[in-house]
Simulated assay, not measured.
Amino acid sequence: MRLNITNYDVLRAVKAEIKQSEARITRRIYTVAILSVATIIFVLMLIITSQTPTTRDYAAEAMKRSFEAERAVRMIDETVNTHFLELSKNKQ
């Protein structure tokens, strides 16, 4: 135990405490940054995986309507006997 504490000793102790607190703050900042990036990636993955079935349903519905429209055009074409589909294929 020292009885004589000088200003230099106090200054050294304060500098050491400041360095330790800077190290703690830096670790916390890095931890928060890494967790933030991980959370953003997790949320994006969650959104993408939850939207995949919806997108698939939209695509399936669009294909179904396309086939129905083509079938309707074929039926009209056969009924009227205009052969629009064959004419359009020949022009291409």
Rank of each mutant, 00 (worst) to 15 (best):
E86A: 07
V37Q: 09
A23M: 08
T39Y: 03
D9C: 01
S66M: 05
H83F: 07
F67T: 10
A38E: 08
T6W: 03
D77G: 00
E70A: 04
L85F: 06
I47D: 10
M45R: 08
Q51V: 01
R24N: 10
T6K: 09
V10I: 15
V37L: 09
S88K: 13
M45H: 09
D9F: 00
F42E: 10
S36F: 01
I25C: 06
A33Q: 14
R12P: 01
I34R: 13
R27W: 08
T49N: 03
L11M: 12
T82I: 10
A13K: 13
R28V: 02
L85D: 13
T6P: 01
Y58Q: 01
T79Q: 14
D57K: 07
E70L: 00
I34H: 11
R71T: 07
V43P: 00
F84Q: 11
D77S: 11
Y8P: 00
L87R: 15
Q92K: 14
E70D: 07
R56M: 00
A33V: 11
V73Y: 10
L44H: 09
Q92Y: 12
R74V: 01
S66H: 11
A59Q: 10
I47T: 15
A33G: 01
Y30T: 11
T6I: 06
A13I: 04
R56K: 05
R12L: 00
S66A: 05
I29Q: 06
L87E: 15
V73G: 00
P53K: 10
Q51W: 01
Y8A: 11
S21L: 15
I41L: 05
N81V: 07
D77W: 04
I41T: 11
I76M: 11
T31E: 12
Y30M: 09
R27F: 02
I25M: 02
E17H: 08
R24A: 09
V43K: 00
I40S: 09
E86S: 07
A60W: 00
V43L: 05
I76T: 13
I76A: 13
A38W: 03
V80F: 01
M45V: 06
L44T: 14
I41A: 03
P53T: 12
M1W: 05
K19L: 05
T52Q: 08
T39Q: 04
A16E: 14
A69P: 01
I41Y: 02
R12K: 13
I18T: 13
E22M: 05
K91Y: 12
D9R: 11
F42T: 13
E70W: 03
P53L: 05
R27L: 03
A23Q: 13
K19S: 02
N90L: 06
F42S: 12
R65G: 02
V80A: 08
E68N: 04
T26S: 04
R65A: 04
A59S: 08
T31K: 15
V10G: 09
V10Q: 14
S50P: 03
I34W: 07
F42L: 13
L11K: 15
V14T: 09
M75F: 04
S21Y: 08
V80K: 08
V43W: 02
A62V: 02
R65Y: 07
D77R: 09
A38V: 05
E86Q: 10
E22V: 07
K91E: 09
E68C: 01
V80Q: 13
I76R: 15
T52K: 05
